[in-house]
């Protein structure tokens, strides 16, 4: 007997059960590329927000790059900022409204290249915000250029002969400058622990303990050129990326 294929969701109501309550159904299907890791990260975040019951308290700041596509993903007050500038925006927000739960959602380019100064200093000052960085080891929105996270030798649009030897291990750095922050790295392919990490990060902030930082290893089939090879996508994610960037709490 042929296996019954799951019905492909196309209409907003099809998503109702699969998505967190705080997700905005009318903006689904989402506008990320097929197979993209962002929706997995957002789902984990959304379920954590549901569980904590803070949908009305979250100020959701999104960066430029693929992360900007999440601007209407949730039914939450959201703002799109400039490339790399979401962290200071949410820092400013938090100081003016300490009751709000300020979340900055940023890609690896935004957080580790153009906005690295903001990230590092927000961590040093132990700002009471949550920062979620989606690390897919590439500049995706702009067309697959080299990021500070691109693994050595990887051929990308601006490194046709192969990416540089070194790359950034951000959670390690954050831990180094801030001994009390919540610091963890998750991965899209293992949802349950990712959701737990998100919840812990938000709780850390809500308890006023300071900086909460989550990096999530995520896939970009389009720029990894694995669109039609899902197994390959997950091989890169779970073998190559996870080897260079250990998934754990710091």
């Amino acid at each position: 007997m042929p296996e019954s294929k799951p019905k492909r969701a196309t209409k907003p109501e099809d998503f109702e059960l699969a998505l967190p309550k705080c997700a905005r159904l009318s903006s689904k299907p989402h506008s990320f590329c097929q197979g993209c890791g962002h929706p997995e990260v957002l789902k984990a975040l959304g379920f954590a927000i549901d569980e904590l019951g803070i949908q009305d308290r979250v100020a959701f700041g999104v960066d430029i790059g693929c992360s900007l596509l999440s601007w209407d993903y949730f039914n939450m007050d959201s703002v799109e900022t400039h490339h790399g500038r979401t962290i200071p925006t949410m820092v400013g927000f938090h100081h003016a409204n300490p009751e709000g739960v300020a979340v900055a959602y940023v890609g690896d380019g935004g957080a580790y290249a153009i906005g690295s100064g903001h990230l590092l200093n927000a961590a040093i000052r132990n700002e009471n915000i949550t920062v979620i960085v989606v690390n897919n080891a590439v500049y995706a929105m702009t067309g697959g250029q080299e990021a500070p996270t691109t693994l050595p030798g990887r051929k990308v649009a601006t490194a046709p002969c192969g990416a540089d030897e070194y790359y950034i291990k951000a959670p390690e750095i954050i831990r180094n400058v801030n001994p009390t922050a919540f610091v963890a790295r998750g991965i899209t392919s293992v949802q349950a622990p990712l959701r737990t990490i998100m919840k812990e990060a938000l709780t850390h902030q809500m308890e006023g303990k300071g900086f909460a930082f989550v990096e999530v290893l995520s896939q970009c089939p389009l720029n990894w050129k694995t669109l039609d090879k899902p197994e390959k996508t997950f091989e890169v994610l779970e073998k190559e990326l996870a080897q260079a960037y250990p998934v754990k709490r710091y």
Binding site: P88, V91, G92, H95, A96, G117, H118, N121
Partner: peptide, 26 residues
Amino acid sequence: LVFRQAEDETGAGFMLIGGVLAGARS
């Protein structure tokens, strides 16, 4: 009262935006 010294003027400018978004005369 809030005073925040940013990491640079870019950061200060966006913190300012965050403060205004939160409704503070900043």
